[in-house]
């Protein structure tokens, strides 16, 4: 028996999950691995015996994605450390989509996983501070602090991209 509704839901949401996962992982293959792990968790929960339907499957899936990412990074934390200072890698003049993605990946690369997740949830998925906090299992204050810290670290690397892609916005920085 196919699980009623799950496959349709998964097909519809997978592209958006991949986009979020790519920003979190900076790597397409890791992102697809993360998405499959996320779908697996939603699959198990979809019609789990003794539990009612998922109230909001979209939010559930994205929460699972975020927490799976953070959890996997905690497991790898013995070998991965966020960098004290972001690398002074040259940011491409973002004249096309690939350069922009590379610039963004470079900017996100040195952030701690949780800081990266805050940026993705707040500014890609457009969640409020409270919603981000709930999805990550953090306090709203912690989300604000991480958000400010992360923005402060990526700003120097992304300003160039912003200037190239949206030259009229120069001068509107915080």
């Amino acid at each position: 028996m196919s699980k009623p509704g799950f496959e349709d839901f998964a097909r519809a949401r997978t592209p958006a999950l991949v986009r979020s996962a790519w920003l979190l992982c900076e790597d397409r293959h890791l992102a697809e691995d993360l998405v499959q792990d996320t779908l697996a968790k939603v699959f198990v929960r979809w019609d789990a015996p003794f539990r009612g339907p998922i109230d909001d499957p979209v939010a559930y899936a994205h929460t699972a994605l975020t927490r799976t990412f953070l959890s996997s990074r905690r497991r790898r934390s013995s070998t991965e450390r966020p960098l004290e200072h972001l690398p002074e890698r040259p940011v491409a003049d973002a004249t096309d989509a690939t350069d922009l993605r590379l610039a963004l990946a470079g900017a996100l690369a040195g952030l701690a996983p949780a800081d990266r997740a805050v940026l993705v949830l707040r500014y890609l998925e457009d969640l409020s501070v409270d919603e981000t906090a709930a999805r990550m299992g953090l306090s709203p204050g912690a989300v604000r602090n991480r958000s400010m810290r992360a923005l402060g670290r990526v700003r120097p690397l992304l300003d160039g991209s912003l200037a190239v892609t949206h030259p009229r916005n120069e001068g509107t920085h915080e």
Binding site: L23, L104, L124
Partner: peptide, 23 residues
């Protein structure tokens, strides 16, 4: 960089991910 700028950059970077690459 404003919050709006950050959001626009993230959306732009992921919007241009070629969807046909996603199997």
């Amino acid at each position: 960089m404003s919050e709006q700028d950050t959001s626009r950059l993230l959306h732009e970077a992921t919007r241009t991910l070629p969807d046909h690459d996603t199997d």
